[in-house]
């Protein structure tokens, strides 16, 4: 199975500041990928590189085996819902569908109209008069009716209320179930993504901290509690992600390839949010010195 997105040494900078650096990724096809990280971590930059809105300053990126934005045929294979779900305020819902039809040879008009009807949107309503949730749904409809192989969504629910959030994600899952596109969706909240994703990328401080199948992440990360340990006392194959120590006791979040055998530790399962928070905390504790020529 080929990768839907393959990045190698990928970097992008604005002025002297690197928004994304040394990004290595190989995302297998058929996944619903969650991209999490705090605001300003570089999530939008990575996604805009993936859809060809930005070009890399370092390394390379291939989406569906091609350079993003290189040709109209490549662009037809990738659907994109931008942050804040921009639409033309002066154009009506049906104008937007016509826009989609004329801008995309692979346009599925029946699908688009069906979705609009299902959502209960008035085709004559101007997009500027839609609620945030409705506008996000319209933007999703535009991206989905392209019938893309990869759907990229940049914080699509960030500005939505909880109900609209749920409806949007539900709509997204229906589309994925029906048409089977790969999806990459970003959010700064793990909770948004937990229910829909099967693959997770944690991006903090312009770097990818961890990426993998959620099941694997859950299986390989543990919280260890026990008498105070030195960090480097862990066996090989185990890496400390985060730790806190008191005089008597150590609490570590570790990534381990196999089971934890040391009987002095009590081992606890972690949920996804714990794992993500551990990586975020680590990035704050150990800021990497970034020196580039």
């Amino acid at each position: 199975m080929t990768a839907v997105l393959e990045a190698s040494g990928l970097g992008k900078r604005y002025g002297h500041k690197w928004a994304l650096s040394e990004c290595m990724l190989a995302i297998p096809a058929g996944k619903v990928v969650g991209l999490v990280g705090p605001n300003g971590a570089g999530k939008s930059t990575l996604l805009q590189l993936a859809v060809g809105l930005l070009h890399p300053d370092a390394g390379s990126i291939a989406v569906l085996g091609e350079r993003p934005g290189a040709s109209s045929s490549e662009m037809a294979r990738v659907g994109y819902v931008a942050q804040d779900t921009p639409t033309y305020a002066g154009l009506s819902v049906s104008d937007h569908l016509r826009f989609g039809a004329r801008m995309n040879p692979s346009w599925d008009g029946a699908l688009a109209e069906q979705r609009i009807a299902h959502l209960g949107l008035d085709p004559h309503q101007k997009a500027g008069r839609l609620s945030g949730g409705q506008r996000a749904q319209l933007a999703l409809t535009l991206a989905v009716a392209k019938r893309p192989e990869l759907l990229v969504l940049d914080e699509p629910v960030a500005s939505l209320d909880p109900l609209a959030r749920r409806e949007f994600l539900q709509g997204l899952m229906e589309v994925v179930a029906e048409h089977g596109a790969s999806v990459i969706v970003s959010s700064h909240l793990v909770a948004d993504l937990e229910r829909i994703c099967d693959y997770l990328i944690v991006l903090v401080g312009s770097r990818v901290r961890v990426a993998g199948d959620i099941d694997d992440l859950l299986a390989s990360h543990h919280r260890l509690t026990g008498p105070r340990h030195e960090r480097d006392a862990l066996p090989s194959g185990q890496a400390v992600i985060a730790g806190s120590h008191t005089d008597k006791q150590s609490t570590l979040v570790v990534r381990a390839d196999g089971p934890i055998l040391d009987p002095s530790w009590s081992v606890e399962q972690l949920d996804l949010e714990d794992i993500v928070l551990a990586y975020m905390a680590r990035a704050v504790e150990q800021p990497k010195l970034e020196v580039r020529s």
Partner: peptide
Amino acid sequence: RLAWTQSVT
């Protein structure tokens, strides 16, 4: 961002 991510360069 909408216009430049359709199937038109």
